[in-house]
C-alpha cells in the first residue's frame, strides 16, 4: 500500500472531489476501501455474468439451424469469453487475482446475472437472449461508460461496441422467425414471453429496495438508478416488439402522455428473489458446469506451468554452461 501524508478524512474528501468533478479514478490512486470492495463486487459480478452467460448460448452452437447463424452465434459466445477476460483483468487492477474471483464464483460468494439461471430451451431463445438480455445489458453498460473507475469505464466503451452487434444478431433471429412460418412465429412469441420479464429484472430491485445503490451513486460507480435504466429499456422495447408483429407480454402496459413514457405492469419480485436464491431451473447446473470444466482443466494448467518451468530451467542451464 502506498503511504499518504494526509489523514483518511482528507484523502476521502479529495477523492470525492475528483469523483464529483468527473475525473477518473485510476488503479494507483487512493480510494476508500469500501469503494474498492464495491467495485470488485460489481466488476467481478459483471465478468462472471459474461462467463456464465456463455453456457445458455453455447448450448445452442451445435444446434444452430443454418451455417450462417451458427457462425454468428459462435462469434458472439466467443466475444463473451473475451469480455469476461477483459473484465477479470480490469478487476485485477484493484488488487485481487483472477483465481480468487473464480473461487468466489464457484463457492457462491460472488454472484452472476440471475437471468442466466433461466434455461435456453429453443432456438427462439437465442433470438430473445441476444435482443432482450444483451439489450438490457447494453442499457446498463452505456451508462457505465461514464463510471468513475477508469479501467472499468474504458472496458465498457470497448465492450459496448461488440454488445450492439450481439443485440442486433438476436433481433435478426427474431425478425427471421417472426416473418417465417406460423410455427416459427409462435417460437418467437414463446421466447419473448419467457424472457421479457426476466430481462426487466436484470436492472435489479426498485431503487427503494436496492442494497448498494445510494453509495454507488455517490461514488459514481453507478450513474443512473435501476428504475431509470429499466424505464429506458421498457420504452425502447415497445416499438421493437410492434415491428416484429408480436404481442407484448405486459398486458398492463400503457402510454403515459404526461410523463412521456410507458407505465408498466408490476414485476413479479417473488420470482426474482426465488431465482436469485437458487430456485431457477439452471442455478445448480451453471455452477456445476463451470466447476467441472475448471477441475477437468486442472491437469492442463499444471502441465502448462510445469513445461514453462522446464523451459526456463533449460535456458538457465544453457547459459550457465556457456
Amino acid at each position: 500500500m502506498t503511504k499518504y501524508n494526509k489523514s483518511e478524512a482528507e484523502l476521502e474528501a479529495s477523492f470525492q472531489q475528483r469523483v464529483d468533478s468527473e475525473q477518473k479514478i485510476e488503479p494507483k490512486d487512493w480510494m476508500p476501501e469500501a469503494y474498492r470492495k464495491n467495485l470488485i463486487r460489481q466488476m467481478s459480478q459483471h465478468a462472471h455474468s459474461e462467463i456464465i452467460g456463455m453456457q445458455p448460448e453455447g448450448n445452442w452452437i451445435t444446434r444452430a439451424p443454418s451455417l450462417r447463424r451458427k457462425t454468428v452465434l459462435l462469434s458472439k459466445v466467443q466475444d463473451e469469453a473475451g469480455h469476461g477476460l477483459y473484465l477479470y483483468s480490469a478487476t485485477e487492477t484493484l488488487g485481487i487475482e483472477r483465481s480468487e474471483l473464480i473461487a468466489a464464483l464457484q463457492s457462491g460468494k460472488a454472484k452472476y446475472a440471475s437471468i442466466f439461471n433461466y434455461p435456453a430451451q429453443t432456438w427462439g431463445d437465442m433470438g430473445a437472449i441476444g435482443w432482450l438480455v444483451d439489450g438490457a445489458a447494453i442499457v446498463n453498460q452505456v451508462s457505465l461508460q461514464r463510471t468513475s473507475y477508469g479501467p472499468y469505464a474504458r472496458g465498457m466503451i470497448r465492450i459496448c461496441k461488440e454488445e450492439s452487434f450481439h443485440q442486433r444478431q438476436g433481433y435478426v433471429i427474431m425478425m427471421e422467425l417472426a416473418k417465417g412460418t406460423p410455427a416459427q412465429k409462435q417460437m418467437a412469441q414463446d421466447s419473448l414471453n419467457r424472457f421479457y420479464w426476466p430481462s426487466l429484472m436484470m436492472f435489479g430491485p426498485h431503487d427503494s429496495e436496492s442494497a448498494h445503490s445510494a453509495k454507488s451513486m455517490k461514488w459514481k460507480i453507478k450513474r443512473e438508478t435501476n428504475d431509470d435504466l429499466r424505464q429506458k429499456f421498457i420504452d425502447q422495447t415497445v416499438p421493437q416488439i410492434a415491428y416484429l408483429g408480436l404481442e407484448h407480454p405486459d398486458k398492463d402496459l400503457v402510454w403515459n402522455e404526461e410523463k412521456g413514457q410507458h407505465d408498466s405492469g408490476e414485476i413479479d419480485w417473488d420470482e426474482f428473489y426465488a431465482v436469485i436464491n437458487g430456485n431457477g431451473h439452471s442455478n445448480r447446473q451453471r455452477i456445476q458446469h463451470h466447476v467441472k470444466a475448471h477441475e477437468e482443466g486442472a491437469w492442463v494448467r499444471d502441465a502448462m506451468s510445469a513445461y514453462q518451468q522446464k523451459k526456463t530451467q533449460r535456458k538457465v542451464n544453457a547459459e550457465t554452461a556457456a
Binding site: I51, M54, Q55, G58, Q78, A81, H289, G297, A298, V300
Partner: peptide
C-alpha cells in the same frame, strides 16, 4: 466453448 481449461482457451 465454455468447457475449456481456462478462458483464453475458450
Amino acid at each position: 466453448v465454455s468447457r475449456a481449461p481456462f478462458v483464453e482457451e475458450d
